[in-house]
């Protein structure tokens, strides 16, 4: 399987597959940039159903997407986090700017 991208009603769903480290974060960033250029995206949702790990590179990538869409009034949300990911999100303060689902 691979990370899946789906656009629905100006919202981009990113269904992560695998550990969100620097390696995967670079790939996701690149793919998001292509999609954001091609579609009128307002919000982004990162779905962690198939990802059980994230480090500070993942935090940086999510923050980067937030900075891209926030000026246009968009939101970033994170769904299906396990406890490990939730802990990193809270330690980094990411929960103050993105929605937890």
């Amino acid at each position: 399987m691979a990370t899946e991208y789906q656009v629905e009603n100006r919202k981009l769903y990113v269904r992560l597959d695998g550990e969100l480290d620097h390696h995967l974060a670079e790939k996701v960033k690149h793919q998001c940039e292509i999609i954001l250029k091609s579609y009128p995206i307002r919000d982004i949702e990162f779905d962690f159903s198939n990802s059980g790990f994230m480090d500070s590179s993942g935090v940086g990538m999510i923050l980067g997407r937030y900075r891209q869409i926030q000026p246009m009034g968009g939101n970033v949300s994170i769904s299906h986090m396990n406890d490990t990911i939730r802990r990193v999100v809270h330690m980094a303060g990411l929960h103050q700017i993105v929605k937890e689902k």
């Binding site: 500070s56 940086g60 330690m91 980094a92």
Partner: peptide
């Protein structure tokens, strides 16, 4: 490059 500057903080935590 979207580096957060949190790497060492995470290691220490």
């Amino acid at each position: 490059e979207e580096r957060t500057g949190m790497g060492f903080s995470f290691m220490e935590a």
